[in-house]
Amino acid sequence: MTQADDHNDDVTLAGEYALHLMDAAQRRAFEARLDAEPALRRLVVEWDEQLVPLADNFAEQTPPKAVKARIDAVLFPTAQKPSWSLWRILTGSAVAAALAVAVLVTLPLDRAPTPFAPSLVAQIAAEDQSLVVLASYAPDTGILRVDRQAGAAPSGRVLELWLIAEGAAAPVSLGVLPADAVTDITLPADLIPAIAGGTLAISEEPVGGSPTGTPTGAVLAVGAVTTI
């Protein structure tokens, strides 16, 4: 077999895959190769793009309304837990809800001798209290102390903390919360001005945190930062 033969084989296989001609076993074997071979993936994308003009023959048909309702019920079982989009929060409609769950917490300031003297706090809580995290920020130290009082990450996932500055265009990650209930996060200098008046939120993400730099999983809890 020459290299050209091998290439032609891959072109053919990629075409058979794109047309969905392979049986289930062949398809699985080919998909295992796709995971490992970017060049093969490109061949499949190329076929899909080149064949897609045939899709003009699929005549449009408006689906019944019930289908969208079923999809929403599968994806967003609202009775279970809030999975608000941070974008919704940013666009204001959910800000009231976020504020409603954020309660002013009086910290035991006389807990001497700790030098940690917070002036800003937020209770980041799920609507049903299934996840409650108390965050407090002490300007003298630059430390944001995060105390997970209830709840945990779903199995196989991690909790990631986000800061949405007042009027900001996008949330900024403050990192993945460790398994420990209490953790101290040293805020980067450029984020310190953003914390007052900001909103903190926790999403569930793949292990290692959001791969994109923005939340990819459900937003489990939110809380506005308030002054004490």
Binding site: V67, S83, S85, L86, W87, S203, P215
Partner: peptide, 17 residues
């Protein structure tokens, strides 16, 4: 990014096709 409004808009724009 988890934007549900965009999801609904995408559905409206492409579900017939």
């Amino acid at each position: 990014l988890g934007d549900r409004a965009a999801f609904s808009a995408l559905y409206d724009a492409t579900s017939a096709k």
